[in-house]
Design a protein around this nucleic acid. Structure first.
Lengths: 196, 196
DNA sequence: CGTCGTTTGTTGACAATGTCAACAGCGGCT
DNA sequence: AGCCGCTGTTGACATTGTCAACAAACGACG
């Protein structure tokens, strides 16, 4: 009745890849080290993923899912409706700052990286989380009217730009205070531009 | 009197790397193929660059310089002051769309990529071009008051987000018209948010 | 209960690649 | 001329992604 379960090994492999990516950057994620860290031997991943890029796509999907969940959690937490939008955006940026390697894996990947349906679905979920955030902000009067999908995309574009420039260090210009304060300032500035 | 000139070979190597990157993506840029395309033999690049990443940093710097020049040229072209800001932004996005691989090289690179002073300088130049664009727009009344540096950063964040999401294909959602129209719509939407 | 086929995992091997060491020209300076 | 510093080439090596051949485990089915 119960078919054999390859899932634990598969998730172990993804988890190992995640740990290695966090610890040592993209170069540390080799199939051999992943296999070793997952307790299996090299090229065992080939029984669960067609390719190395396929493995990385699965990892990216997992990371995107965590990001979406974090946004939802953060935007639901504060009882003050005025700060929900900010909290959701801050969650996005916090996640990016804490796990820059994962974020870079998702979006910094080569444009031609074959995207798995799994990754596509995760991306849609992330977009949905942002749309919910926008709709809630509209209901709270924190955001002007407009198609939620469009507004969510604009918000995403802004958050993504902030995140990527923060990661690549381009927000740290000369004569500037430390990065986090600057990041939050820019976030407030951008949100103010969208406020009714 | 004339000291030996390593420049031609150096620029030939960078040019070859650029061509290979455009044609075949990041994976096509191997030191061997670069050397071959430049008319020299593999590991000749090691006489001009300490590392492969050093070579890529030089290429990224060149690409950034071209982007800055293109922005300046485009924003100076139209006689109608009202469309200068839009032209400059469109130039940014056009450059990105035409050479996504180069743009990805500059910003999609690993966060820990050691940045050359040359690359830093090029980044400063790009930022300066955006600042000039903002200052001109302010003089034309197309943009509200505010520190040009701050506004330029916000503009950059938005453009960068647009560019990266366009490249990675995340702007093509279901039930959406084709990408370019959408990109321009979003640009107009973002610029409208910044207008006084 | 025994046999078989499929799935999962291991090891061997191979081509490609980044990188370094050793060597060869070549130009300029004393 | 003779030496020295660059520039460039070739040989060699470790690492890595990937595939082929093989072994073990487990359910299906007689």
């Amino acid at each position: 009745m119960s078919p054999r379960n390859p899932e634990p090994t598969r998730t172990a492999i993804v988890a190992a890849a995640s740990t290695l990516l966090e610890a040592g950057g993209p170069d540390a994620v080799t199939l051999r080290s992943v296999g070793s860290a997952a307790g299996v031997s090299r090229s065992a991943p080939y029984r669960h993923f067609t390719d190395k890029s396929d493995l990385l796509a699965a990892l990216a999907a997992r990371s995107l899912g965590q990001l979406a969940e974090r946004i939802r959690r953060a935007s639901a937490a504060p009882s003050d409706p005025a700060s929900r939008l900010h909290a959701g955006c801050a969650a996005y940026l916090d996640h990016v700052i804490e796990q820059p390697q994962h974020y870079q894996l998702v979006f910094g990947g080569s444009p031609l990286t074959a995207s798995t349906p799994e990754l596509e679905s995760a991306a849609d979920d992330g977009m949905a989380a942002l749309r919910e955030l926008v709709q809630q902000a509209q209901a709270d009067g924190e955001l002007g009217p407009g198609a939620p999908r469009e507004l969510a995309t604009v918000l995403w574009v802004f958050l993504h730009g902030l995140a990527q420039l923060q990661i690549s260090g381009h927000l740290h210009e000369p004569r500037t205070v430390d990065g986090d304060v600057r990041l939050d300032d820019l976030l407030s500035l951008g949100l103010a531009a969208l406020r009714p």
